[in-house]
Computed example of a mutant assay.
Amino acid sequence: MPVINVYLTFDGNCEDAFNYYRDVFEVEFAMINRFKDMPPQNGTKLPEGDAEKIMHVSLPISDETVLMGCDVGGEWSNDFVQGNNFSISIEADSKKDADRYFDMLSIDGEVVMPMDTTFWGSYFGMLTDQFGINWMVSFDIENSK
């Protein structure tokens, strides 16, 4: 069965976002590399402001899921557009966990749909966090018994 992981791209605030997500999920980074850690590339010089930006970070959320991300840097910065064309879906183990994830992720963000019981038997809510990332949080009430 395939494993699906989400890769997020940021314009200089990847470290802030991933420190925040680390606190939300109470896990530690598996890897964090900065652009300055990258070997020289065919004589090109790393732009001065990009050295401390995140080249790659990986945050294991569970045995099956890893949240990954990076900052754009150098010439790629010009093409960066903060997007809203995806959501990260979290299936919580309990209603309490669903509420905690939702409450923490919505800090300084925007609640799109508050947590509530839905017609499909899920406790569900949607939000956009302070970094512009869309989240769907759910707990399957029907199958929890």
Rank of each mutant, 00 (worst) to 15 (best):
K96H: 08
G109H: 02
K96M: 13
I107M: 12
T118N: 02
E110M: 03
V66P: 11
W76H: 13
K95F: 01
F131M: 10
V112S: 13
I133P: 04
V81M: 11
L127C: 07
K95D: 10
W76G: 08
S106Y: 00
R100Y: 07
D129T: 04
F124I: 06
V72G: 14
F124N: 03
S89V: 08
V72A: 09
E91P: 04
I88W: 03
G69R: 03
Q82N: 10
L67A: 13
F131E: 13
S77I: 08
G83S: 12
M68N: 11
G74H: 11
I133S: 01
N85V: 04
I133V: 11
D79C: 05
D103R: 02
I133Q: 11
N78W: 00
E75G: 14
R100H: 10
I107D: 15
Q82S: 11
V66H: 04
L105C: 11
I88R: 03
D116Q: 08
N84P: 02
G73K: 04
F124Y: 10
E75W: 00
Y101Q: 13
D108F: 00
V72T: 15
D129W: 01
F131I: 09
F102H: 10
L67C: 07
K95I: 01
D97M: 02
S77K: 13
S122A: 15
V111E: 08
C70T: 11
L67R: 08
D103W: 02
W120N: 08
V112G: 12
M126C: 03
T65K: 08
G73A: 13
P114N: 07
D108C: 04
D103A: 09
R100Q: 09
M115W: 00
R100M: 14
M126T: 04
S106D: 03
G125S: 01
L127Q: 07
S122E: 15
V72R: 09
D129M: 00
F86G: 08
V72L: 11
F86Y: 15
I133Y: 01
G74D: 11
N85S: 11
M113F: 05
R100G: 11
W135V: 04
Q82D: 09
E75S: 14
S77A: 15
T128I: 10
V81P: 06
G109F: 01
N85A: 09
G125C: 00
E110V: 00
F131R: 10
